[in-house]
Each structure stands twice: as C-alpha cells, then as structure tokens.
Design a protein around this nucleic acid. Structure first.
Lengths: 247, 247
DNA sequence: GCCCCCAAGATTGCATGCATCTCGGCCTAA
DNA sequence: TTAGGCCGAGATGCATGCAATCTTGGGGGC
C-alpha cells in the first residue's frame, strides 16, 4: 500500500491521478443517503497523531527535521494540515522551530530534563494520592497483573518489556486518579521524557523500579493516600537523582 | 489608528493601498546593509498572544466564538495566521472546537476546575519547595514588597488589586523555582483557572490568602523546603475546597 | 397552528500561489 | 590555501481559492 494515506473525506481537486471513477459517485442503491463517514476525522489530526507517535517511539530522533513539504507528500495531502500538526507539536514541546527555518524534533537539554522530572515528581505524587482515594478492586486487579508481568520481565532482563510495563503502570495510576488535567500533563511530561531518553541513555535498576511500584501499589490498595503519594514521590525522585548522577 | 495592525514584515501583495513609496526602499546612506528588523515576529504569534490575552482578561467570555474570518479582518491579515493561533489556543485548552463548526472560548466545567486545582496543588507544592531551595535575598525583598502591598489591598477590600497581587506572588515563586516546565504548566493552569472564574464566581478570604502567603514566604525565607511546600499545599487546598463548597 | 424540509449564506478545512528567507556551493580576491 | 561574498535551490509564512459542511429562516405539508 502507499506509504500512508489520509481518508479523502473532502476536497478532491483531482489535479493528478485524475481519471476519477466515472459513475462510482452514486452510492450503491439501498444505502442511506449519506453513510455519514463514521467519525470524519481531520487530516491534520491524523498527521499530528502519526508524527507524534514517530517522535515518541524514537523513529524520529531529536534534531530531525520536520519538513512540511516532505510530510505533505508522504501523507498525500497539502501543506496546510501538516503545518497545523507541526504547530501543535511545537506547542506541546515535542518540536522546536526557528523563524523561517522550520521545525525539528526537540532536543531536550539536561537542565530541561531535570525540570521535567521536577514536574513529574509533583504530578505523580498527586496522581498516586488521588488513585488511593479513588481505589477500587478493579484497579487492584489491573495493577497486580501489571506488577507480576513487570517483575517477570525485570528478572528476565527484558528492557523493552520493562519500559513498556513501567509506562503502563504509571498510565493506570493516572487513569485511576480521574483527573483529566493531571493526566494530560503527565502524558505531556512522559512524552518529553521519552524523547530526552533518546539522547541521554540513563537506564537501569529495573528490579528496583518494580519494588518501588509495588510499594505504591500496596499503599494505594491500603487506601492510604499519604503513603501512596510518598511512595510515588520517592520513586520519581530516585529516577531524577539518577539523572544527576548519570550526567 | 486602525483597530490593530500586524507589522507587515513580509508579504505585500499590494492588492489594496498599493501606491507603495517609490524610492523609499533604499535606506538612508550610512546605515548598515540591513537593520535586520530587530525581532521579526510572526503574525500568527502576535494574534495568538492578543487573543490569549483577551480570553484570560475576560474580554472574551467562555462560549464566545473565535471566528476566523472576523479575527482576520480585525487584525488585517489573512485567515492563515489566525488559524494557526486558534489551533494553539485549542491545544492549550483555552478554546475548544467541534469539527466543521469552529472554535469557541472554552467553558471550564466544575469537574475540570476541580481537576485544575488538583494539578495546581501539586505544582505549587513543588514550586514552593524549589523556591525555598533556591532562596536568595533578592527573592525575599521582592516577596516582602508584594506581601506588604497585598495586605494593604486586602485590608482596603480592593478586589482587583488583591487578584493582581495574589497572581504576582505566585508568579514570583514559580520564577524563583527556576524550573521551566513547572513554570509553564503553572502558567497554563493559571490561565484556565482565571477563565473558569468567569463562570463560577467564587471569591473571598482575601486576608486569609495574605496570611497563607505570609506562611509560604516565611518558610521560603527560612530555607525550609518541606515547610514551604506544605504551606503552599495548604493554601491551594483551601482554595480547592472552597470550590467544592461554593458549587 | 405545528413540524419538517430545503435553500441561501456563512464558515470550515484543505489546496495552492507567491514573496521572502535561509543555507549550501561556487567564484573571486588576498 | 583560505576568507569572504554572490547566487540558486528549497523551504517558510502568509494570501487566497474552493468544495463540503453547518446554520438559519421561510415555505409547504399535515
């Protein structure tokens, strides 16, 4: 299939690949007047999501150019929706741009990474507290499953699985906190942290991370917000201090 | 003067008001080859700032339409930079949009306001801690000046001054924290909180706020991060609980 | 009288044109 | 050889065109 392709959804100038299917326009008889196109998502939204995924997954490294014409051609759209997407990525801090020189995937400096962790400390602290306050047995089951899998992965030394399950654990907690603003901020921080990790590869302590997660888990299940918050804080703070050391 | 006017800076299609100054092009002799136009800011940036100010200042109420053609005409630019600005405002949470129906100034629901305060609790908690760690005498002087003026305003019952000085106090602390990510998040939260206050007018406790600020101030000046964080937390938490009550 | 349908007007989202800007390579001069 | 400036290719930021969609008010059907 072609590299990627946005649902046409509207606007078919038919400049190239004209030869449009002649009478295909009429929908098969019996159909409703308009299938309504389920959701009708904007092209700009699709591109935003796609490029964001590439940045966070590491497919696009820090410093990589986000060329608007190139992306436009790749997604088979004009430059407008691509521009919209890039603007959003810049606003989000995942890309940075210089006047008249386009945007590049952001390079997270050491100082900014520390700042990110300072923010993350506070946010995870709050999220764990709220999660403990809003504890449900379903949460316990979910977290327990993640923890078990995580410990197995850590003992096996599976780094990819570790990263995946670590992120999943934190994601569950911020979902359980049921605070959309907190969750959105943590999402943003998480994305930028992952981006930064492409540059400064500070990893390790997989089993220690599992133990700390377990402490958070136990405090949440005990319905002890203060203990949960403290455990989360200690966990993130340790990661932050590893950054200082790893510098 | 015309309502607003973006620095032309580039692009002069010369559709209207053509009659361009003929030989004015050549700079006065002796000048550098190019004055470089100081900063050369984008039109979209100017519009973003302007509309953002209007939203936060309350000139544009929640629910007000952000009509792209109307704004384009007002600022005497095309729709493109206006579109860019609106996209950024939506991304920031100050506006919301429905597919094919444009954007409106965001209506912050009660639930979202609570969530905003949950996040603000955490962020102010962290900012006060960092400010205490990074204490300098200059910070002491600045905060002391603000506190004195704030107390006077509160005793005089000057609501506008109270709001102004309250915001200034918190701004100083998040500057003193020297954590760009934290500061940016607090900015975003603060903007949306102000927006929400347009709908749910819960105010009061000016003198109490001053007292709480003083407690934060004293802890910071004492170089006690834990006490500063706790004082800030208590301050925001009280405001949050007033929301619950005021509902 | 009330409701549904529909057409006009306005607006959105995307496509595209265009002037300016930046950057790389090449040429000239020291 | 190296420093410095000129030129061209490509990209950016803004302007504008256009089809599809949404909104709104009035007319016809019940």
């Amino acid at each position: 299939m072609p590299p990627t392709s946005i649902s046409p959804q509207q606007q078919r100038t038919a400049t190239e690949e004209s030869a449009r299917p002649p009478a295909e326009e009429a929908v098969r008889a019996g159909d409703a007047v308009r299938p309504r196109a389920e959701e009708a998502v904007r092209a700009g939204e699709t591109i935003y999501q796609a490029v964001r995924d590439r940045i966070i997954s590491g497919e696009l490294r820090p410093g990589a150019r986000l060329s608007i014409p190139a992306l436009a051609e790749e997604f088979s759209v004009s430059r407008s929706p691509v521009r919209d997407a890039v603007i959003r990525l810049v606003q989000e801090g995942l890309a940075s741009e210089n006047m008249n020189r386009g945007a590049v995937v952001a390079r997270i400096s050491g100082a900014e990474l520390v700042s990110l962790y300072e923010a993350r400390e506070a946010l995870e602290w709050a999220a764990a507290r709220l999660a403990a306050q809003r504890y449900t047995p379903a949460l316990r089951r979910t977290l327990l499953g993640l923890l078990t899998a995580h410990r197995a992965a850590a003992e096996a030394g599976d780094l990819a699985q570790h990263l995946e399950l670590d992120a999943a654990f934190h994601r569950e907690i911020r979902l359980a906190a049921q605070s959309p603003v907190l969750a959105q901020m943590l999402d943003g921080v998480q994305g930028r942290v992952r981006l930064a990790m492409r540059s400064t590869s500070v990893q390790g302590g997989m089993l220690l991370a599992v133990d700390e997660h377990q402490a958070i888990f136990e405090a949440i299940c005990a319905g002890d917000p203060d203990a949960a918050a403290e455990a989360a804080l200690a966990h993130i703070r340790r990661l932050k201090e590893k950054l200082h050391a790893g510098r």
